[in-house]
Design a protein around this nucleic acid. Structure first.
Lengths: 242, 242
DNA sequence: GAGTGGTCTAGACCACGTC
DNA sequence: ACGTGGTCTAGACCACTCA
């Protein structure tokens, strides 16, 4: 009905309107929104357009729609936090990487089992040091299935992040990354690399990247200096603003 | 065009088709999808329906659409991992909570500043012990602005999770939860509560819940026994299956 | 200017939930 | 039976990109 009037889409304005009503408390947790037909009438727009706005709110986790009943206001899912590895631990200074070594390990049954690399004989181990300025902040050890004809380029080893490295080195398409965050004490070797005291507590971040068939393609273990690296997460930098 | 034929929506089938093409490697990172008009013709469906399928793939992070150009295959965002506090650290046995104490602290300027509770005079402190079976796994300390007329119910204190507690106790609507994951050594008091040795490394999870105006509404600090609690995260339990 | 995705319409039928 | 959201259509115009 109303066409130009502004540069931003009508469904977006509708979604923002409702969002503000929720965040200001006019609409409370559990409240029922007007029906799509009613909203269409109020805003003088077609129902499909209303649905586009509704979909935006549902994506952002502000409402939940139930077939046959209606759309309900829900508390935002503050229980779900997103870790963005691209930014996590990155303060003002960006991180630098220093390649320590790359090894090919053959026929090590024990390691193969530990990694879950069933049926694999050759494993590539990449060890890198992460630094901020001159200060070492973490040790990163990566394990990959050896893939013939997929050489690891020096630049990738130095600069690529873990999921990217796996994607570039594997024929199988990586589809999932599972992470376990735990704590350990620095071994003497780790302490030396991090220029810290032995037995100092350390953050341990383990990642396993899987293919569609749930076959592990790569494993990464980061050991982080407790005072020089923090993981951060936030509930929903989800989707397009709103 | 084709109406019943199956119970699952047409746009969903289209999305799955393309998804399988991506995951099997037929479509590779950076490839351009057919145009919406072409897909509509191929599947004999209307363009709006094609767009619904495309939107699903974009939401899942499998493709990216660019106005005026087309839809491109992208590597799934394995760099973004989701922590689900409802499940994290929950193995076979569910967690139990034991309320240690609830205090009201008045006019403690230092604490108020540390928490970022500007303009607040009264702060509620809730301390809980988390157990699995008989074993203490973590200490949880929560700080809330005192809210007149919003009493904290015993059941909430014992069973509610942190975001829920804040939502129930605040008039302002909580919209964001930021988390910092770090490491520390157990103090003697903490060690005693966790039935562990002093100075043992511990996982520290700090959460701050904000209102729309970025005013902190609540702070939670969890100190976890290193061998009894792990945080887990995964890249994309996102949205509806697919 | 040709081609793409982005927005929007005014209808339609369906499946589900409630009464 | 009725109201709700879910799916789908066959058009239309717009904004953007690229040659």
């Amino acid at each position: 009905m109303k066409r130009r009037e502004n540069l931003i889409p009508v469904y977006y304005r509708l979604a923002e309107d409702i969002k503000h009503q929720i965040e200001s408390g006019v609409l409370k947790d559990g409240d029922l929104l007007p029906t799509e037909a009613q909203l269409g009438e109020q805003y003088a727009i077609s129902r499909m357009t209303v649905r586009q706005g509704i979909a935006l709110l549902a994506e952002a986790g502000l409402i939940e729609t139930v077939k046959g009943k209606g759309s309900f206001v829900t508390r935002p899912r503050l229980n779900q936090l997103v870790i963005d590895l691209k930014n996590s631990g990155a303060s003002a200074d960006p991180l630098r990487y220093k390649l320590l070594h790359v090894n090919l390990i053959r026929n090590n049954q024990k390691l193969t089992n530990e990694l879950g690399f069933i049926g694999e004989t050759n494993i590539i181990v990449v060890k890198r040091l992460m630094l901020r300025g001159q200060l070492p902040v973490a040790i990163e050890e990566k394990f990959l299935r050896y893939q013939k004809g997929k050489p690891l380029l020096e630049t990738q080893l130095e600069y690529a992040d873990f999921p990217e490295l796996v994607a570039k080195h594997q024929d199988s398409v990586p589809v999932r990354n599972d992470m376990i965050i735990s704590v350990a004490s620095l071994s003497s070797e780790q302490a030396k690399l991090l220029e810290a005291n032995e037995l100092l507590p350390a953050l341990v971040v383990k990642q396993v990247i899987y293919s569609r068939e749930d076959k592990p393609l790569g494993v990464s273990i980061m050991v982080c200096h407790k005072d020089r690296f923090e993981l951060t997460a936030t509930s929903y930098p989800l989707s397009g603003r709103l």
